[in-house]
C-alpha cells in the first residue's frame, strides 16, 4: 500500500482482478484474434482508396462517426464488466465513459493495425491514412496512425492490453467525478494488477512508464478529435444534428 487511495490487496486478489478484466476484454473486443487472422490483412486497392477520397467530406465524417460509435458500444460493455465499475455512482460511470471510451478505442486499435503497411482495419479491409483524406484532418489521422504504430511496437499481450484499457478508463483525474476516491481505489487496484501481470509475463520494468506516457498521448488525440469535430460542426451543423449517431453526439457534445 502506498498512499491514501491505495488499497491493501493480496496477490490472489490481483490475479482475480486481472482475470476478470482480461475476460471482459476478450468478451467485448469486437473482433477476436482468430477473426482478425481470417481477414487475411487485405488492403484497399488504389481504386477503392480513390473512391473514399472522392466522398464528400460530410459523408466520410458520418461513416467514421458510425464506426467509432460501434467500437464505443463494445467499450461500454467492457466497462460494465469491470469489477467495481457498476458500483460507482451513475454520474461517475458516465463521466468516465464520456472521457475515456474513445481513448480505449484508440488503445484497442493496435489489435487491428498492420504496422508493416501502416494500415488499420476499417470498413472491411485494411486502410492507410490516405483513405481518410476526405475528412480534412490529415494531421489528426497521421497522429492516430503513429499512436497505433507505437502501441504495436510494445507487443502487449491480450491481458496486458485489457488491463491497460481498464486503467485508462478508470482515470481518477477526470473532471466532474462525484466520488473521486472510489475511482482512485479502483484505478490503483487496476494498476497493481497491471504491474502484477507485467511482472508475471517477465516484461521489462520500464514498460509501465512507457504505458504511462501513452496516457497523455491519448488525451491529446481525444482533445484534437473534439477540436476537429467542432470545426466540422461549425460548417455542417445540420449533418451532425440529423445524420450522426445519437451516442456519438452524447459523448462528444455535438
Amino acid at each position: 500500500s502506498n498512499g491514501d487511495a491505495s488499497p491493501a490487496v493480496s496477490m490472489a486478489e490481483l490475479d482475480h482482478q486481472a482475470q476478470i478484466i482480461s475476460k471482459s476484454h476478450l468478451e467485448t473486443c469486437q473482433y477476436l484474434r482468430e477473426e482478425l487472422q481470417q481477414m487475411s490483412w487485405e488492403n484497399f486497392v488504389q481504386d477503392e482508396v480513390e473512391n473514399y477520397q472522392r466522398k464528400p467530406r460530410e459523408v466520410m465524417w458520418q461513416l467514421c462517426a458510425v464506426k467509432i460509435t460501434e467500437a464505443i458500444q463494445y467499450v461500454v460493455e467492457f466497462a460494465k464488466r469491470i469489477d467495481g465499475f457498476m458500483d460507482l455512482c451513475q454520474n461517475d460511470q458516465i463521466v468516465l465513459l464520456k472521457a475515456g471510451s474513445l481513448e480505449v478505442v484508440f488503445v484497442r486499435m493496435c489489435r487491428m493495425f498492420d504496422s508493416q503497411n501502416n494500415a488499420v482495419y476499417f470498413d472491411g479491409k485494411f486502410a492507410g491514412p490516405d483513405v481518410f483524406r476526405a475528412l480534412g484532418c490529415d494531421d489528426l489521422i497521421a497522429s492516430v496512425f503513429d499512436f497505433a504504430k507505437s502501441m504495436c511496437s510494445l507487443h502487449l499481450s491480450e491481458d496486458e492490453l485489457a488491463l491497460f484499457s481498464a486503467f485508462v478508463l478508470l482515470s481518477a483525474d477526470r473532471s466532474w467525478l462525484q466520488e473521486k476516491l472510489q475511482v482512485e481505489k479502483l484505478q490503483q487496484k487496476t494498476q497493481l494488477a497491471l504491474q502484477h501481470v507485467l511482472q508475471k509475463n517477465q516484461r521489462e520494468d520500464e514498460l509501465l512508464n512507457k504505458l504511462r506516457c501513452k496516457v497523455s498521448a491519448l488525451r491529446s488525440l481525444c482533445s484534437r478529435h473534439t477540436e476537429k469535430l467542432s470545426a466540422f460542426r461549425a460548417v455542417y451543423p445540420d449533418i451532425v444534428g440529423t445524420r450522426f449517431p445519437p451516442l456519438y453526439k452524447e459523448l462528444f457534445g455535438a
Binding site: T28, Q73, Y74, V76, E77, Q90, I94, P246, L247, E250
Partner: peptide
C-alpha cells in the same frame, strides 16, 4: 439524465456483445 439518455440505457441494459 436526459442529456445522456443513450449512455444510461446502455449502462442499464444487460446486453451481450452478440446483441450489439
Amino acid at each position: 439524465k436526459e442529456k445522456h439518455k443513450i449512455l444510461h440505457q446502455l449502462l442499464q441494459n444487460s446486453s451481450s456483445p452478440v446483441d450489439l
